[in-house]
Design a protein around this nucleic acid. Structure first.
Lengths: 238, 238
DNA sequence: CCGATATGACTGTCATACAATCCTACGAAA
DNA sequence: TTTCGTAGGATTGTATGACAGTCATATCGG
């Protein structure tokens, strides 16, 4: 009566993705704009006229506007009535709030990971951490960001909580703008790695509370660094 | 030459909002659809053809589509390519995840409230709690929901963390669908009020950890009830 | 130098159009 | 009768053009 009769020939290993590639153009548009903001092509506070975006992306105003709606609810841009979209900035106070939330959620992620992750996921996380270590030596920021994203992805996946993943993703995209404008504090990389090392060790040891504490601590440190930069930036900009 | 010449007669008390009511029509559209989903006018899984929404809202497809994009990133609907939007359901697993996140965040909110809320805010929260108590006697679900929302709004405001507020709001709208389809478990109301009472008392006493614990417990209980309902519903529907 | 106005840029919203795709139902073949 | 294929309708995906309302700026007259 319908398809799905794929003869059970070989042993597909559970994945089988890419079956449906019906990516609406609009997704590319969102990605494109989001990326442009992330890499700092648009500065905070800069206006983004729809027509300019049309030219830049090569699509019609319809699609640009739909993309803008999505970016708006992601908090990447704010749309002022009759003036249009501008790249959303982050005040130090907002950043503090975001990092507070992140700390809680990453703490939760750690505990869930300890409780629910399979051995394969533990291994994946360990590998991701190793890669992260070497990636941190690189000078290319995008490599470092990618490695860190992969690491977190492993963590989240192991935690097996969809809402948690989505929420963290949202918060992160909100502060992506920070990463772009500020190349991390110099000394921070090594300290950060040490913190993550503690975290991974606690995770591997199956010590949930310790892992949570390590995560909270790590985020708190990152917050301090980021807020510091923000304050300095703001002082300079004002 | 134009309006806005409101003669400065009386003393406006500090608020003065609604001065600029440049509410884009599109916001109303979003509210309208969101509300329609919340009150259960559309069932979970039901398709929402754009044209139907145009008729219902009386606006053009452009606006409907932009509204859909926002609702999509809020997680209220999912859009399948070439089929269009359907009301997003919540599986028991997803609900569990959402409630886990909520527990953490409401716990955080409590601690922040203790640390930062002003006396006025404490009073406002107490009042909101009193109103909540009497509202819970009502049979009209919308009254109860409103009262609860006001209570949470006070809590969040006192916590003074924007991102926290937004995140919780998002999570709540995601499970609003639950409230619509299921009139709470009968006995739950009283127990719930008792839990909230503990919470408020801890807040007023300035005991952050206790307040957090109360919040986590409250959410955990609510989660249990909600997931239970979901499971039963799913069993019946399948 | 200052204020009023004209002008342009941009958003907010609509109507229309057409291709691509999905679903369904009907009809043809085995 | 069952299966298969296909035609047609429904719906989305995307583009275009249009126009009113509004904001910002430049211009012009005092």
């Amino acid at each position: 009566m319908d398809d799905r009769v794929v003869k059970p020939s070989a042993a597909f290993e559970h994945d089988f993705k890419v079956a449906r590639l019906a990516a609406p153009l609009r997704h590319s548009v969102v990605d494109s704009i989001r990326n442009a903001i992330a890499v700092g092509r648009f500065k905070v506070g800069e206006r983004l006229p729809e027509r300019g975006l049309c030219e830049m992306t090569g699509v019609s105003r319809t699609l640009v506007r739909e993309a803008l709606r999505q970016l708006e609810s992601e908090g990447l841009i704010t749309v002022v009535p009759h003036r249009g979209p501008v790249v959303a900035g982050v005040t130090p106070e907002q950043a503090e709030g975001i990092y507070q939330v992140r700390a809680q959620l990453e703490g939760l992620a750690c505990e869930l990971f300890v409780a629910k992750a399979t051995d394969a996921m533990r291994k994946a996380l360990k590998d991701a951490y190793k890669q992260l270590k070497s990636a941190m030596m690189s000078n290319d920021p995008s490599i470092r960001v990618n490695a860190k994203n992969r690491f977190y992805q492993c963590l989240i996946e192991g935690a097996g909580n969809e809402a948690l993943g989505q929420t963290l993703h949202l918060l992160n995209s909100r502060i992506t703008v920070l990463r772009a404008t500020s190349l991390q504090v110099p000394g921070r990389v090594k300290v950060s790695l040490r913190e993550l090392n503690d975290l991974v060790e606690a995770l591997m040891a199956g010590d949930g509370p310790a892992a949570r504490a390590a995560a909270v601590h790590h985020v708190a440190m990152a917050a301090e660094a980021a807020i510091d930069i923000l304050r300095r930036e703001q002082a300079a900009g004002a």
